[in-house]
Design a protein around this nucleic acid. Structure first.
Length: 547
RNA sequence: GCCCCUAUGGUCAAGCGGUCAAGACGUCGCCCUCUCACGGCGGAAUCAAGGGUUCGAUUCCCUUUAGGGGUACCA
């Protein structure tokens, strides 16, 4: 068959590939610089897995002095959602994973010389390369309808699968003559363009995956679709064309793509492009109700959407560090040794990524987050907290900002010590944790508390309390009071003979804490009392009488 | 069905032919302590099963099992 003639028939208006190759010359980058990309399909949110990939991409690009760009893969018309690309971009920004190039939340705001970075805007490019493949005899039109007649693709494939158990597929439309094709085109029939695979399932090729290492995989033998009948390419073709033209050097993608790697490689080959390096990453999973591991799912798992972490108030760095910990497990050792450095300084490496699908662990996340927050200053905590509250808890935000000095001093309790407390893992816990500072005491945790002892102790203590006492004096007074009321001031003595006392100083402190906070658990009560001020302290002491 | 990937404690995991099988989270105990926490110390807990190869297998090979993924004109 005259393939050039066929190409003209199929794509009469397509530009030459040379045109595009000239328009998008090879990137001039220093040696070793890697170009990476995140290429989500805009479905209205950013998957936690995307953040995970974005982190790999960004760190890899940064480390090598390269570029990380964002491309929108909006080739599935059925799944298009308005402004989904904006959301994806802004989520990346909010996690400090901002791309250097590409789509930036708005069609007009793209930067970079290799655009358009939205696939639906690149149809002309795909046509040119599709045409070139037809010219080279490496692609053919297929007129089969997915939904009708004996040529029903699915049906045929199903049958073939049952009969031969093989995925090899020499498409019948390969045999169409030029005349037949011309006829169908004249009749206005739509066609899909397919790859004329010359692969052999019995042969293998060796590939080197950056994570999986050297592997032998079977050749592709499927005549995969290059252009859908609506004129839009599916993933594989868009991937091959775009990543070649845009100069991607490393493609980071989920492991679910690994089985189609041989098809993609054949495509690059047919196109005459050198394929990029690949890194097929593990997929973040979780344990479902039946005890089975499964991929994080948008529908079932709120944590599949990175917005979840923002709403809950996990600091973005904590989330990133958790992900980083999943990626390179030596990160946490590095973190303990370098408590003050940014995670960006960590010697990240793709090759250190394990190949197991990790299970998402909220407890570990909380631990990382608590540690992170404990390292922050009160001002930093205040700023982040307010930023969160502004969006998710307006009332609390008002209280915080109207009393900013007070708020900061509350947040500063036990923070400047060498071993700061680790009570807070996410911002939505703060209000509840410090409610007695911001809202007064709603109810007292008085189970297992001897109320008469409590009242006696507080009554006596209210007399001696003086807010001007320094901490030494403050505690001396408590000890004196303990002696006076019959509480032990020596823990060892108390333990030896508990019956001899009403309790020990610890109990006395618990009473004071209860009076001040309503709780048995709180940060340093000396500080709390100071911040509250004498009037409020005395008021709270008085309030105990009523309990 | 067929193909691919994976398999170390409850979780994340080091390990890459000879280790008393790191470390972290969680858990338990003790200590410190004005409670809780923080911190310190210690304990329990892992090589999926069965075959090979080898002087020697957690490590290499095979089988089984389990889990994940793919098998779309979805990505």
């Amino acid at each position: 068959m005259d393939t050039e003639k066929l190409a003209k028939l199929l794509y009469p208006n397509a530009k030459t590939t040379e045109y595009w190759l000239e328009k998008y010359p090879k990137r001039e980058l220093k040696k070793g610089a890697e170009v990476t990309r995140l290429a989500p399909s805009p479905t209205g949110y950013l998957h936690t897995g995307h953040a995970y990939s974005a982190l790999i991409n960004k760190l890899t690009a940064k480390k090598s002095g390269g570029i990380f760009y964002l491309r929108l893969e909006d080739t599935d018309q059925k799944r298009l959602i308005d402004h989904a690309g904006d959301i994806a971009y802004h989520m990346l920004v909010s996690y400090d994973l901002t791309p250097d190039e590409g789509y930036r939340g708005d069609e007009l705001a793209q930067i970079g010389d290799y655009g358009d970075y939205i696939q639906s805007k690149r149809l002309g490019i795909y046509q040119s390369f599709a045409k070139s493949l037809v010219e080279k005899g490496k692609a053919f039109p297929c007129f089969c309808k997915k939904t009708e007649g004996i040529e029903d693709v699915e049906e045929r494939r199903q049958k073939q699968l049952e009969e031969t158990g093989n995925i090899e597929e020499k498409d019948p439309c390969r045999e169409l003559t030029y005349e037949q094709i011309e006829e169908k085109i004249k009749n206005g029939e739509e066609f899909a363009l397919k790859l004329k695979s010359n692969g052999n399932l019995d042969k293998t090729i060796v590939v080197e995956d950056l994570i999986k290492g050297k592997r032998e995989i079977r050749e592709n033998a499927k005549d995969i679709v290059l252009m859908k009948s609506n004129g839009i390419p599916p993933y594989a073709f868009a991937h091959a064309v775009d990543d070649s033209l845009m100069g991607t050097t490393i493609v980071v993608r989920g492991e679910e793509w690994y089985p189609s790697l041989s098809a993609h490689l054949e495509l690059f080959n047919a196109l005459g492009f050198k394929p990029p390096k690949y890194a097929h990453t593990p997929v973040i999973c979780k344990l479902d109700k039946n005890g089975n591991k499964r991929k994080l799912s948008k529908r079932k798992d709120p944590e599949a959407d990175v917005r979840f972490f923002i709403e809950e108030g996990y600091p973005k760095v904590a989330v990133i560090e958790y992900l980083l910990n999943l990626l390179n497990s030596d990160f946490e050792i590095w973190r303990t040794n370098n408590p003050t450095l940014s995670y960006k300084e960590f010697p990240f490496s793709i090759s250190k990524i394990g190949s197991n699908n990790p299970m998402f662990d909220f407890i570990k996340l909380a631990d990382i987050s608590k540690n992170y927050i404990s390292r922050l200053s009160a001002d930093e905590v205040y700023t982040m907290l307010v930023e969160w509250a502004k969006r998710f808890d307006i009332d609390f935000c008002k209280i915080l900002t109207e009393n900013s000095d007070f708020s900061k001093s509350v947040l500063n309790i036990d923070r400047t010590t060498p071993k700061p407390r680790k009570d807070i893992a996410k911002w939505n816990e703060v209000k509840n944790y410090y409610d007695y500072m911001f809202y007064g005491i709603k109810n007292y945790q008085l189970e297992d508390v001897d109320k008469s002892k409590l009242k006696e102790a507080i009554k006596a203590y209210s007399v001696v309390y003086n807010e001007n006492d320094d901490k030494q004096v403050w505690f001396e007074k408590i000890k004196n009071l303990a002696n006076k009321l019959g509480y032990a001031t020596d823990n060892k003595l108390y333990k030896q003979n508990p019956q001899a006392y009403k309790g020990n100083v610890a109990d006395l402190c618990t009473y004071i804490r209860l009076a001040l906070t309503g709780r048995k658990n709180s940060p340093d009560i000396y500080e709390i009392a100071k911040i509250l001020g004498t009037r409020e302290v005395q008021r709270r002491f008085k309030n105990i009488e009523k309990q």
